[in-house]
Design a binder for these strands. Structure first.
Length: 336
DNA sequence: GCGCGAATAT
DNA sequence: TATATTCGCG
């Protein structure tokens, strides 16, 4: 299926899906189909600050006092070695993806409607790959803030491969270690919701969702588990609609303002500076152009104003936003 | 055998 | 609770 689109340079790809937000998506989509990827990169580079203008890696971007004032955890400082490693990993993964092109049927249909600028899998390098997988109890989940303010090379996204870093060389079949426990970050969850809401209830099955999410390392089992939880959630809120108003729309639980309101914020005020607890980068999610028959009413949510496609608020609880709780859990417990 | 989904386990 | 794993079924 990759023959459907002219290929772009690797660098352009990396930059595109790392830096795109909803504000720049259209522009990139326009120029994404031509062969000018490398040229565009050069143009961008021409406008980039020189090395002297950049803050050294060893220096903090935010003064500790200011960080604490906004309850922002101090991000661990990165070294050039970290940056180098992250860059190497990004490049190698991009190469790998250009080699083996997936051609699953649903994904193929999906890709046809994707811009070539975002045609690669979501594998946005994270310097700290503990973000999506929590290997042990001693490893705390990455803070949403740190999740946003990643240091290093191409890491500004929220999604990275759920795989832990393969520290050693090519570990082929000698992998006996179990896959670490996955963590559904808000970004992954949003992607999940975007895909599910654009599939009918008929097509929203684990394998299809997995393929459309296009996240490296994400397994069908991962999705199935999450989907099961989502269905339980749907069942719950549907069965609760006639009970007390607090049962399904308790403002205490109707939160996740970061993700839920983020989309709308981007649409209305694209240039507005993000608050520390917001996820600053929109994940390119071009399933909006999918030809699927949308199952209206299957999932709670509204409609994308730009194209009329249904969407689901990321808290799956409707449009209430009382702005108190951040991002977790995705599925709120029944208010008992 | 594959994949789904409910049940069960960790 | 969140996620993984198992298991029966089509």
């Amino acid at each position: 299926m990759e023959g459907d689109f002219p290929e772009m340079g690797e660098e352009a790809d990396a930059i595109d899906f790392d830096l795109l937000d909803s504000g720049t998506l259209e522009k990139a989509v326009e120029g994404g189909g031509d062969e000018g990827g490398e040229r565009r990169v050069l143009e961008w580079e021409a406008g980039l600050p020189s090395g002297e203008d950049l803050t050294p890696l060893s220096q903090m971007l935010i003064p500790p006092v200011l960080a604490s004032a906004f309850s922002m955890p101090l991000v661990e400082l990165k070294t050039m070695l970290d940056v180098h490693h992250a860059a190497q990993h990004t490049i190698s993964n991009l190469r790998r993806h250009h080699q083996n092109s997936a051609s699953g049927h649903p994904a193929a249909t999906y890709k046809r409607y994707k811009s070539s600028a975002t045609d690669d899998r979501v594998l946005l390098e994270s310097v700290d790959r503990k973000e999506c997988f929590n290997s042990g109890k001693d490893v705390p989940m990455m803070d949403p803030v740190a999740d946003s303010f990643v240091t290093g090379t191409a890491v500004i996204e929220g999604i990275s491969s759920p795989f832990p870093a393969e520290n050693s060389v090519e570990d082929n079949s000698t992998r006996t270690s179990k896959r670490p426990r996955m963590v559904w970050t808000p970004q992954l969850h949003k992607r999940f919701m975007d895909v599910v809401s654009h599939l009918g209830i008929k097509n929203a099955v684990p394998k299809t969702i997995m393929q459309l999410m296009n996240v490296e390392g994400l397994t069908r089992e991962n999705v199935a588990s999450h989907l099961q939880k989502y269905r339980l959630y749907l069942k719950r809120i549907q069965g609760d609609t006639d009970e007390g108003p607090s049962s399904s729309f308790d403002p205490l639980f109707a939160s996740m303002p970061v993700l839920q309101s983020f989309h709308e914020q981007q649409l209305q005020q694209p240039m507005q500076m993000q608050m520390p607890y917001t996820v600053p980068v929109m994940i390119p999610m071009p399933v909006y152009g999918m030809p699927h028959h949308h199952a209206h009413g299957v999932v709670p949510g509204g409609v994308f104003p730009e194209n009329g496609h249904p969407y689901v608020p990321n808290n799956w609880l409707g449009s209430n936003n009382f702005g108190s709780v951040v991002s977790y859990p995705h599925f709120f417990p029944k208010n008992t």
